[in-house]
Nucleic acid binder design. Sequence first.
DNA 1: GTATATGCAAACCGTTTGCATGGCT
DNA 2: AGCCATGCAAACGGTTTGCATATAC
Lengths: 138, 138
Amino acid sequence: MDASPETHVARWLASGQLRPTRQRLALAELLVGDGMNRHVTAESLFALSLNAGEKVSLATVYNTLRAFCHAGLMNEIVVDGSKSYFDTRTDDHPHFYWEDSHRLTDAPAEELKIASLPQVPPGMELSRVDVVIRLRRA
Amino acid sequence: MDASPETHVARWLASGQLRPTRQRLALAELLVGDGMNRHVTAESLFALSLNAGEKVSLATVYNTLRAFCHAGLMNEIVVDGSKSYFDTRTDDHPHFYWEDSHRLTDAPAEELKIASLPQVPPGMELSRVDVVIRLRRA
DNA sequence: GTATATGCAAACCGTTTGCATGGCT
DNA sequence: AGCCATGCAAACGGTTTGCATATAC
């Protein structure tokens, strides 16, 4: 063992040049504390933090998620016009969107093979390719 | 010539079992009157209709777009959390999203080749695969 | 005549912001 | 000390809804 959970999230924050405040540490712990990838909305993370007994305001959850994204620690994903999803995994990878439960999960990236992509128009460059595989109950 | 523009949009409405009201005919004319594909937001279509001198309320634009989508005549596409885009082309095809101008256009479908797709989880079926190619100014 | 579409304005919901307070370095 | 983060509540913008009126069948 070379890193306690606290050190892990503290380093995660530090890698984004973000100050380790109590609220950020708490939210980071909920997001990446166990080293797993997580997909949250602002509301769901807010609920998680209340559930964990943390005192964090909803506005801070929004600000913090935005700060994490801006620092490159997370990505924002849009699948449903009504809310934003945030993903702790930062590489470009496909997602499953479960239309019945409005949940977003990772799809296995190695099973997606794009043989060719439309040519990028002149004067533009590729920013990202979003692939969302929408699922419905069979 | 076998179809005046009016007949064309009237048939388009009829194919979705939608009553040909004045407002729907006007909006349909703006959307598919020239047989081209079009990408609009509720606001942009509302602006178009005002510009064309049509009396249509914003609420009706929303209701009508929803009705068109529900009837399978259009598709809703989500790329930007802040607003919904509507596409008159109903087959599954990729899009360019121009991040600087917040515009959405078709990408050439034949240039996108997906060699393999992640396996659909048990009990689920594929609803749609959204591919959004995000572009930024080079 | 009946069911459905429309218009208006008010409600709605997720998100952002202004400003005073509190915490990190 | 100074700057940045936080909390609260109010503002915001796109979308939806309730209800009275008008239109299609």
